[in-house]
Design a protein around this nucleic acid. Structure first.
Length: 102
DNA sequence: GCCATGGCTAGTA
DNA sequence: GCCATGGCTAGTA
Protein backbone atom coordinates (compact mmCIF):
# COMPACT_ATOMS: atom_id res chain seq x y z
CA UNK A 1 0.00 0.00 0.00
CA UNK A 2 1.16 3.45 -0.89
CA UNK A 3 1.01 6.10 1.81
CA UNK A 4 -0.28 9.59 1.27
CA UNK A 5 2.46 11.00 3.48
CA UNK A 6 5.11 9.48 1.22
CA UNK A 7 3.51 11.00 -1.84
CA UNK A 8 3.49 14.42 -0.21
CA UNK A 9 7.13 14.00 0.83
CA UNK A 10 8.15 13.39 -2.76
CA UNK A 11 6.08 16.33 -3.96
CA UNK A 12 7.77 18.76 -1.65
CA UNK A 13 11.05 18.05 -3.44
CA UNK A 14 9.84 19.27 -6.82
CA UNK A 15 11.26 22.73 -7.48
CA UNK A 16 9.48 25.60 -9.17
CA UNK A 17 9.44 25.35 -12.91
CA UNK A 18 9.79 21.58 -12.87
CA UNK A 19 7.21 18.79 -13.09
CA UNK A 20 6.88 15.09 -12.49
CA UNK A 21 4.25 12.48 -13.35
CA UNK A 22 1.81 10.31 -11.45
CA UNK A 23 3.60 7.20 -12.62
CA UNK A 24 7.07 8.45 -11.70
CA UNK A 25 5.94 9.15 -8.16
CA UNK A 26 4.44 5.69 -7.93
CA UNK A 27 7.68 4.13 -9.18
CA UNK A 28 9.81 6.19 -6.82
CA UNK A 29 7.79 4.78 -3.95
CA UNK A 30 8.19 1.22 -5.19
CA UNK A 31 4.66 0.77 -6.57
CA UNK A 32 5.09 0.96 -10.32
CA UNK A 33 1.43 0.28 -11.03
CA UNK A 34 -0.10 2.69 -8.56
CA UNK A 35 -0.13 5.77 -10.77
CA UNK A 36 -3.86 6.11 -10.60
CA UNK A 37 -3.82 5.73 -6.86
CA UNK A 38 -1.35 8.60 -6.71
CA UNK A 39 -3.87 10.74 -8.54
CA UNK A 40 -6.50 9.90 -5.99
CA UNK A 41 -4.18 10.78 -3.15
CA UNK A 42 -3.33 14.12 -4.70
CA UNK A 43 -7.01 14.83 -5.11
CA UNK A 44 -7.26 14.65 -1.35
CA UNK A 45 -4.26 16.92 -0.82
CA UNK A 46 -5.03 18.73 2.42
CA UNK A 47 -2.53 21.51 1.89
CA UNK A 48 -1.91 22.80 -1.64
CA UNK A 49 0.20 25.60 -0.19
CA UNK A 50 3.09 23.44 0.97
CA UNK A 51 2.45 20.47 -1.30
CA UNK A 52 2.71 21.65 -4.90
CA UNK A 53 0.46 19.08 -6.52
CA UNK A 54 0.03 21.31 -9.56
CA UNK A 55 3.50 20.14 -10.63
CA UNK A 56 2.24 16.65 -11.38
CA UNK A 57 1.16 15.90 -14.95
CA UNK A 58 0.50 12.85 -17.10
CA UNK A 59 3.18 10.60 -18.52
CA UNK A 60 2.76 12.06 -22.01
CA UNK A 61 2.98 15.66 -20.84
CA UNK A 62 -0.73 16.34 -20.82
CA UNK A 63 -2.09 18.29 -17.93
CA UNK A 64 -3.98 15.81 -15.78
CA UNK A 65 -6.43 17.06 -13.19
CA UNK A 66 -6.60 19.54 -10.37
CA UNK A 67 -9.03 19.56 -7.48
CA UNK A 68 -9.44 23.30 -7.69
CA UNK A 69 -9.97 23.37 -11.44
CA UNK A 70 -7.60 22.74 -14.31
CA UNK A 71 -7.53 26.41 -15.26
CA UNK A 72 -5.91 27.20 -11.97
CA UNK A 73 -3.32 24.50 -12.49
CA UNK A 74 -2.37 26.02 -15.82
CA UNK A 75 -2.13 29.46 -14.29
CA UNK A 76 0.19 28.27 -11.54
CA UNK A 77 2.45 26.41 -13.94
CA UNK A 78 2.68 29.34 -16.32
CA UNK A 79 3.58 31.58 -13.43
CA UNK A 80 6.46 29.21 -12.78
CA UNK A 81 7.71 29.55 -16.31
CA UNK A 82 6.18 26.55 -18.04
CA UNK A 83 4.29 26.74 -21.29
CA UNK A 84 1.72 24.63 -23.10
CA UNK A 85 1.71 23.71 -26.72
CA UNK A 86 -1.41 21.75 -27.59
CA UNK A 87 -2.61 20.71 -24.22
CA UNK A 88 0.87 19.48 -23.40
CA UNK A 89 3.79 20.82 -21.44
CA UNK A 90 6.26 22.34 -23.86
CA UNK A 91 9.70 20.72 -23.70
CA UNK A 92 8.31 18.11 -21.38
CA UNK A 93 11.45 15.96 -21.27
CA UNK A 94 13.54 18.90 -20.13
CA UNK A 95 11.07 19.93 -17.48
CA UNK A 96 10.80 16.58 -15.76
CA UNK A 97 12.72 15.97 -12.57
CA UNK A 98 14.39 12.66 -11.95
CA UNK A 99 13.11 11.10 -8.78
CA UNK A 100 15.26 8.94 -6.57
CA UNK A 101 13.89 5.77 -5.10
CA UNK A 102 14.43 5.88 -1.39
C1' DG B 1 -17.89 1.19 -8.13
C1' DC B 2 -15.66 5.26 -8.81
C1' DC B 3 -11.26 7.94 -10.54
C1' DA B 4 -6.23 13.95 -11.12
C1' DT B 5 -3.21 7.04 -15.03
C1' DG B 6 -0.64 4.46 -18.24
C1' DG B 7 0.69 1.02 -21.49
C1' DC B 8 -0.58 -1.70 -25.32
C1' DT B 9 -3.02 -2.92 -29.46
C1' DA B 10 -5.83 -2.31 -33.37
C1' DG B 11 -6.33 -0.32 -37.53
C1' DT B 12 -6.64 4.30 -40.26
C1' DA B 13 -4.21 7.23 -43.55
C1' DG C 1 -9.83 3.01 -27.32
C1' DC C 2 -9.61 -0.60 -23.99
C1' DC C 3 -8.73 -2.37 -19.52
C1' DA C 4 -5.66 -3.55 -15.28
C1' DT C 5 -4.53 -1.24 -11.29
C1' DG C 6 -4.91 0.62 -6.31
C1' DG C 7 -7.10 3.33 -2.87
C1' DC C 8 -11.30 5.20 -1.25
C1' DT C 9 -16.21 5.96 -0.21
C1' DA C 10 -21.02 5.31 -0.48
C1' DG C 11 -24.48 2.77 1.06
C1' DT C 12 -26.62 -2.15 1.49
C1' DA C 13 -27.53 -5.91 4.78
Amino acid sequence: MIKAEDVYDVLRKIPEGKVTTYGDIAKALGHPKASRAVGRILHANPNPIIVPCHRVVMSDGKLGGYADGVEKKVRLLKKEGLDFKNNKVENFEKKKVVLKKN
